[in-house]
């Protein structure tokens, strides 16, 4: 929030700077009057006479009514301007990338309606382009927030869909969060925004559309199909939106949104390790999440779980 990386976040940041400047001035005035009064007008031990009973002062009172009013106007004008600027959601902009964001307990679904591509947890966008978001939820309210790129917007149930827009001029990976209490794992409902070059974005879209792959071991492939793919989708399979799309999960920034993938092990762990952590203890990683437990509910053995983790870790996009 304090290191804005896009125009939407900068507009918020400018207003924050303006308002905090005004407010520090106000605080300084109040604090110095208070300090002066408390030092100067302490009651001395021998003081017996009655202080003068002042009723008020019309001039002073007008002064401290008018000055705050002026300060309010100074802040209100740019605020109203920025509110209306933020109202431009780019939904009719032909050059904008349209993304339908759907909140789920506790993961994010991203549908690129113009490209026919659906993914989860990692929002890949071309740098510099306006992204036109359409936000809704499949269950409870969530709030879609990428602090360094833009303010947040709630995901409401269908029928009360919200639209807004931001862009990321610089390439990079930005942290996204859910900002509206949505259940036990509200704090773990994170996602990533990956801002990449336009060429890279096109390449990513194409590889997302390539046919699904399955584990090499036929037995494991069968288990994977019957146990996992009933909810999850991959590659060119139709997406039911009931669980995160798994296409290219091996090349994502995180597993389950919060287990950061980092082969160096500094900020997280290698993707395979994270997948194993997740699949062996989904409720431990993300309490209250809706995925059936691979071992208890789906009767997968530890070896099968590890096998699936290895397969998923190797399922990368070129």
């Amino acid at each position: 929030m304090l290191r804005p990386q896009g125009p939407a976040a900068e507009s918020s940041f400018d207003l924050m700077k303006l308002s905090i400047t005004i407010m520090i001035v106000v605080l300084l005035i109040v604090f110095s009057i208070a300090a002066y009064v408390l030092v100067r007008f302490r009651r001395k031990p021998d003081q017996r006479e009655m202080p003068e009973q002042v009723e008020g002062s019309f001039k002073l009172e007008v002064l401290w009514t008018v000055i705050p009013l002026i300060l309010v106007v100074v802040l209100a004008v740019p605020t109203v301007k920025a509110v209306f600027a933020a109202g431009n959601d780019h939904s009719n902009d032909k050059n904008a990338i349209k993304v339908k964001v759907t909140g789920h307990q506790y993961w994010w679904e991203f549908q690129y309606t113009d490209y026919g591509v659906t993914t989860a947890q990692d929002l890949v966008i071309p740098a510099g382009k306006d992204i036109a978001f359409e936000l809704s939820t499949k269950d409870v309210l969530h709030s879609f927030w990428v602090p360094s790129l833009s303010g947040k917007m709630d995901t409401n149930p269908d029928g009360t869909t919200n639209r807004f827009s931001f862009s990321a001029p610089n390439e990079g990976v930005y942290r996204g969060k859910c900002a509206e209490l949505c259940g036990p794992s509200h704090g773990f409902m994170e996602f990533k925004v990956k801002s990449v070059s336009e060429a890279e974005f096109e390449k990513w879209v194409n590889s997302m559309k390539s046919p699904a792959v399955l584990p090499e071991d036929p037995a494991l492939a069968e288990k994977f199909k019957s146990q996992c793919l009933t909810c999850h989708a991959m590659g060119d399979m139709p997406d039911m939106s009931s669980a995160p799309n798994l296409t290219g999960i091996g090349s994502r920034e995180s597993v389950a949104g919060i287990l950061l993938n980092d082969d160096t092990g500094v900020d997280g762990a290698p993707v395979l390790e994270n997948l194993k952590t997740w699949l062996h203890d989904t409720q431990g990683v993300k309490p209250g999440n809706k995925m059936p437990d691979p071992k208890k509910d789906m009767n997968l053995s530890d070896e099968e779980i590890d096998g699936i983790a290895e397969f998923l870790a190797g399922y990368t996009l070129d």
Partner: peptide, 28 residues
Amino acid sequence: VGFIPTFTMGGVTGVMLASAPADFQFHD
């Protein structure tokens, strides 16, 4: 006496929150 500066600090952050585009960031 402690109330006056403390409450004033709560008041000024209230005005900061009132600015909707800034509140998009502050909110929640």
